[in-house]
Nucleic acid binder design. Sequence first.
DNA 1: ATGACCAATTGA
DNA 2: CAATTGGTCATG
Length: 698
Amino acid sequence: MTGVDEAREPEAQESLLPGLKAEVRSTVARSRSATRQRGRAAQRATEAAEIDPVARVLVDLPLAHLDRPFDYLVPASMGEAAVPGCRVKVRFAGQDVDGFVVERVAESDHPGRLAPLRRVVSPEPVLTAEIAALSAELAERYAGTRSDVLRLAVPPRHATTEKQPSAPVVDASVDVAAARAAWSSYDAGGSLVGHLAEGGAPRAVWTAAPGEDWPTLVAQAAAATFSSGRGAVVCTPDHKDAERVSAALTALLGEGQHVLLSADSGPAARYRAFLAVVRGACRIVVGTRSAAFAPVRDLGLVVVWDDGDDLHAEPRAPYPHTREVLLLRARAEQAGALLGGFAASVEGAYLVRTGWAQPVAAARAVVRQRVTVAVAGATEQELARDPYARGARVPSAAYHAIRDGLETGPVLVQTPRAGYAPSLACERCRTPARCGHCSGPLRLTGPATPPACAWCGTAAVGWACPECGHAGLRAPVLGADRSAEELGRTFPQTTIVQSSGERVRATVPGGRDLVVATPGAEPVAAGGYPAVVLLDTWLSLARADLRTDEEALRRWMNAAGLVRPGGRVVAVGEPSHPALQALVRWDPLGFAEREIAERQTARLPPAARVATVSGPASAVEEALALLTLPDAAEILGPVPHAGARRGGAVDQPVDWRAVVRAPRAGGAALSHALREMQQLRSARKLDPVRVQVDPATL
DNA sequence: ATGACCAATTGA
DNA sequence: CAATTGGTCATG
């Protein structure tokens, strides 16, 4: 430990001792004359640093209205250690609190007397100017505070790790021609990589062809950027995807050129990786959400893989989305941006539409060469006529795809998650059952009670299907266990491998196994799957959510993307559904563009900026009254909102929630209004309300 | 957050 | 009249 490291400031200016009763205070005043000599000596010892004796400090406070830097005096003893970006402890409103020095200046604007820094926790400059600026931008965008953003951006300190040096930069050669060749299946791919290698900042929305070895292409793009002397940040939805990219980078650049930054790896390893980046020893970062904040020097490229995955939405305040974090960084640091995925998010399509990003897609001929997609109908009538369907509820096209696929390798069967679509459907034609009163979804409420509406509670007595007149209802039979069991009976000689929930397999060998997985848990097969079958697609489409179709297509394409070149995909469902047609045509961008039009009519993101305000009914009402909204903004609700709070204690009051929205042009003004409202409420000590800007779900 | 201060309200 | 409560303001 160095002398400066844990330098402490003696308590020289404890002057007023607030809170003590008057008589006690006078006693203290009398005794003070006795300690005056010592006090002066202490003060002399804390003489200010000669150079830039003022530190501007971002103090870690939970209060929205205190979200600005405060000036402190830098004692001479800390003159060297209190560098911009370092962690400090300061006295604030009578308490010791943590903070970051964001700047050292010669003079303060503050008219009063400055308190000295209490302690430099560590001279390591962990908060770079870029990330400090980013935290301000994000706080504004998400109507939150910088300290909340910084808690996400700067990992907790690990003192032992900090004492170790980071391995120095090693040279690595990059074969730019090979990087271009790897991207040659994509019309604009070669020029994208070339541009990165030349130090440019291209922006692209990349829809990966089925069967693509995308981790390698991401690694090639990062390597091309690296060859121009710049760094890259790659964010994936989960750890297993991050590991694939990491492995591809190791194969390309060797060990030590990149770090894997994720909360999963434990505090010490996480901090070690972070330090390697902030010290400039490492230029390429791969990881999940938190990696988006990695302070890479000379950032040249940001990559988000599968930005439609809700794992990219941060669950902690102020709820930033990885895509937004990285796009803001790309803009602020003049870096390139690559949004990649088998599918495309509506937000990504919007960037293409506005011309901010270029589409990068494989030529039609390449896609046709890689995969054949078919849809097999699976209404009850069709299954009854289908001799193969009787045992497994799998139509013959799917049965054949599985049987043929198993002759050359593993076959992937994707089955919707249990509990994913709990509403009831017509037993015969599978039309989702709706309430005759309000059109809400019907659900089972108990073993002996009739089904009831999930919205208005009306019991559905004597229900008959409006499509086919049938009176029977069925609860969807769901879950990987059930599907695995049925498939095991249909293919008795085959090993069934399950991947779902708690037991997720990252990979499977190239053997002839039947792999049953829920969405997002599909293992990668060595050599790819000769066939992929998507069961019960109608269930994924029966959800009552704004992103239902987009999300369904994303899940199917992520499974279908795992085929081996020349493979076959069979989706069991209604062939005329637009999402399934987009799958057959392998046209994710076209589908997302079509969705944009619907979002525009419905005034939903990305055509509008939407925020929710939730909390106790009275607090929400008051909060809405304090908003100075931009033109054309509107407030919907508030309405009682179940499930807003966790825990679910019986005596806990139900939260209310209002939706506030503004056209895209007024988005910044909406965010600003919400932030000002939060600052006002915080200053007046009013009941807190939760604000979420562009929430993942509504 | 915590504390200070001032004004309004309450109670003997 | 003092004591208490509530709103506002500042915190470096």
